[in-house]
Design a protein around this nucleic acid. Structure first.
Lengths: 143, 143
DNA sequence: CTCTCTGCAAAGCATTTGCACATTG
DNA sequence: CAATGTGCAAATGCTTTGCAGAGAG
């Protein structure tokens, strides 16, 4: 879903399409994983008066509508991204960069596990951690 | 690993085995998933003067030694448990109870995915969310 | 006896919220 | 115009930390 479609999606709801909300959607338009603070910076480059509170309130609404996905790495601020396909995250523990990974077959595994315990209405999130190729290289060089 | 073994493991390190650290290990001895605050309560039933700061400092050390595992559910305080086998978590989004799940085959899937991106030193955590059986029942009853 | 640990309280950081004014539909 | 949204700043909740005295080895 691109930004224009997302703007339109917002209009279909009880929520108003404001300059600020559109700004948040645009900030996430390139697929980046951003903290609320980083989103604020992007939005402020166009609309200098926007507040962090508004960014958080907006992200919460967009998450409820399924337009945004949130992901909280251990020991850090939450990262937000546009909700495109279902995917998972791999986080470098050294540089903290996050990349997306798609894992076919995980849906089946997770719902089987949930089924064994009779859970309903199931969702799941896999986070992989490790050293990314460039951090591995740098580390070996300095060791 | 039981508590006595864990006490011993701590002695093998540069860390001192204090009453407080032993208390935290005991608090986790029954396999519960506890917040730092809940651990403090348990420890205080034996040692009323222990502080929350000490609990956090101790948990961090124990985590570094691999004696404790931490898990942070979306929008809540971190939960700590004794590190036994490798397992994952299923969280009821209504009552917030956490249960353990073991998922054979996940290790393979995760390391394949990480390998495709050339990540080293890989770990992974799967969190499943949903409605537990009793919450499902209650919800249907009240609907 | 030395070095590490602890309690306390203050600070830190991400996130949420109350309120009066501004804006949307 | 009525209802919703916004900026601001204070409040919140979890976690971390500086310091001076206590305790482990």
């Amino acid at each position: 879903m691109d930004v224009k479609t997302a703007d339109a999606a917002l209009l279909q709801t009880r929520y108003r399409l404001t300059r600020q909300r559109s700004g948040v959607l645009h900030a996430l338009g390139d697929g980046a994983h951003l903290t609320a603070e980083a989103i604020l910076e992007r939005v402020r480059s166009e609309q200098p008066q926007v507040s962090l509170g508004t960014v958080y309130r907006t992200l919460e609404i967009l998450r409820g509508l399924g337009l945004v996905q949130a992901f909280t790495p251990a020991g850090g601020a939450s990262l937000y991204e546009a909700a495109l396909d279902k995917h998972h995250h791999i986080l470098c523990t050294r540089c903290r960069e996050v990349r997306n990974v798609t894992i076919p077959g995980l849906a089946t595994i997770a719902s089987e596990a949930a089924g064994r315990l009779s859970f309903d209405d199931v969702d799941y999130a896999l986070t992989i951690t490790g050293r990314c190729p460039s951090c591995s290289t740098e580390e070996r060089a300095s060791a």
